[in-house]
Simulated scan of single mutants.
Amino acid sequence: MRWALGVALALALGAGTGARAADELQRTWDAAWVFAPAEGAAGYARLSAAELAEHLAAASPRAVVVYAHGCDGLSEISAATGRFLAQAGVLTVAPDSFARTNKPKSCDPGIPRGGLHRAVLGWRQAEMRFAAERLRALAPDLPLILMGQSEGGITTATIPAIGADGRVIEGWTCHAGWPEYRGLNAPEGQPVLSLVGADDPWFRAPVLHGECGAFMQGPEQRAIVYRAPSHLAGKHWLSSDRDVQKTILDFILTIANDTKKNRGH
Rank of each mutant, 00 (worst) to 15 (best):
P187T: 08
A88S: 15
C71I: 04
T101Q: 11
P104E: 06
L144T: 02
I145Y: 03
A59E: 13
V7D: 14
I154R: 12
L144Y: 04
A22M: 04
Q87K: 13
R118E: 13
M1D: 11
G152I: 03
S240H: 06
L146T: 04
Q26W: 03
A57W: 00
V225Y: 03
S75I: 07
I145S: 05
E180W: 11
T156V: 03
A132E: 05
G16C: 04
L56T: 11
P160Y: 07
G16K: 09
I159N: 02
Q149W: 10
G234L: 01
K105N: 09
L52W: 11
T155S: 14
I255T: 00
G43A: 09
Q190E: 13
A164D: 05
Q26L: 01
R62M: 00
V34L: 05
P160V: 07
C212Y: 03
E54M: 00
Q221W: 03
P219W: 03
D72S: 15
A79Y: 12
P61G: 12
P179S: 13
G110H: 12
K261C: 05
Q149V: 11
A38K: 04
P61E: 10
A10P: 11
V196M: 11
A137F: 04
E127K: 15
E76C: 05
W237C: 01
N257K: 12
A15I: 00
E188Y: 07
P229W: 11
G153V: 08
P179N: 12
I145D: 02
E51P: 00
V207T: 15
H236Q: 13
L5Q: 14
A94W: 01
S75P: 02
V244G: 08
L184V: 11
M128C: 13
A21H: 13
I159R: 01
A38D: 08
G171Y: 12
R134L: 14
S78W: 07
K260T: 10
A86K: 08
R46F: 03
P191G: 10
K235T: 11
P61L: 14
S78N: 05
A198C: 08
G166S: 06
V196D: 02
L13T: 05
R263A: 09
N102L: 13
D108T: 09
R222Y: 03
A164S: 08
A164K: 01
T92V: 04
T101I: 07
L5V: 15
V120S: 12
K235A: 15
A42V: 02
V90F: 14
T101R: 14
F215K: 00
L56Y: 07
R222A: 13
V90W: 12
A63F: 05
E180M: 08
G115M: 06
A36Q: 01
W33A: 08
L208S: 04
A21Y: 08
D96F: 03
E76T: 14
E76V: 14
L74C: 07
G114F: 10
N185P: 02
L238M: 10
V120C: 02
A68N: 03
D141W: 11
D199Q: 14
R118W: 10
L253R: 05
H236C: 04
P187R: 15
V168Q: 02
P112C: 12
P143I: 07
R20S: 05
W29G: 09
F35H: 12
A79E: 10
Y226V: 03
Q149M: 01
L52D: 06
L85I: 05
